[in-house]
């Protein structure tokens, strides 16, 4: 990692009025997001709010119907490969590793756009080829150490435990040397310890100067991690601000949280009990 924690301030990613319409359905309506260097932004919202659609617009998988996405002031192309080359990396909601490649090979694929290899030195195994491979492997091993997977280097990705697969996906995304990292539900299905480890990992990523956007359902996780939080509801940006502001905003409480977080669980319990009673009756 380029360990140079740059002071936050310069805007890195800027999504301007991104609108996505599928047929008659407006999945996103003029959603904007500004991300400054070294910031961790959270994106929350109920299921179907358009969070992943927004990610897909950012990464070029979808081309927004209107609006634009700027990275360091330059407009991003509507092609996932080009977006990654420009410096936006992502992980997937449902893990999408290269299951039959080893852990190290997975990360090396991430280095693809950052290494040069000409056919002649590849076919003849000239020194230039070995230099490039060595450098790529060195960087990949660094990243594996960073996420704590050094020991699993030669394992086949599909055989890794679930939590390690998530971490490998992050290492693979970091291998593309991104300036912005998009994490789609990085703690889905994790136990509390693993979730905490992921939080630490994201904080360490931020320290290296990479800006991060996180989609997550775990509100406690988002509030404990992010510098700013955006709330998406039915394709519209409802509120944006620091966790404190978002937590206190009556519209969020009304539209999304309903009640303060600590009361939700109590509520849920009551509801469940009532449901049980109803069934018994």
């Amino acid at each position: 990692m380029t360990a140079d924690p740059i002071a936050a301030g310069a805007p890195v990613l800027h999504a301007q009025d991104v609108t996505m319409v599928f047929g008659g359905l407006v999945a996103l309506n003029k959603v904007s997001l500004t991300l400054e260097q070294g910031q961790v932004a959270g994106l929350i919202g109920p299921n179907g709010a358009g969070k992943t659609t927004f990610f897909n617009c950012l990464t070029g998988l979808y081309t927004p119907t209107s609006g634009r996405v700027l990275l360091n002031g330059a407009r991003l192309a509507g092609d996932p490969a080009k977006v990654t080359i420009a410096g936006v990396a992502r992980t997937f909601q449902n893990i999408r590793l290269f299951p039959n490649m080893t852990v190290l090979e997975n990360v090396l694929v991430g280095r693809h756009s950052r290494m040069k290899q000409d056919p002649v030195s590849t076919l003849l195994r000239l020194p230039a080829f070995h230099r490039g491979e060595r450098a790529a492997k060195e960087r990949a091993r660094e990243l594996l150490a960073f996420v704590g997977l050094t020991r699993a280097e030669d394992e086949v990705a599909r055989n890794l435990p679930y939590g390690d697969q998530r971490r490998l996906e992050i290492a693979r995304a970091l291998a593309t040397d991104p300036s912005v990292l998009l994490l789609d539900e990085p703690t889905a299905g994790m136990n509390p310890q693993e979730t905490e480890a992921t939080r630490q990992l994201i904080l360490r990523i931020r320290e290296t100067g990479v800006s991060v956007v996180v989609i997550e359902h775990d509100i406690k996780f988002i509030f404990g991690l992010c510098d700013k939080v955006s709330v998406l509801v039915q394709g519209e940006l409802l509120v944006e601000g620091t966790p404190e502001v978002v937590r206190a905003d009556p519209r969020v409480i009304e539209a999304y949280l309903g009640k303060p977080p600590e009361e939700i669980e109590a509520d849920a319990r009551t509801a469940a009990e009532e449901h049980d009673k109803g069934e018994q009756a």
Partner: peptide, 11 residues
């Protein structure tokens, strides 16, 4: 292995 993931890796 996974064409979409490959594209997301800058391939």
């Amino acid at each position: 292995e996974d064409e979409d993931a490959a594209r997301a890796m800058g391939i």
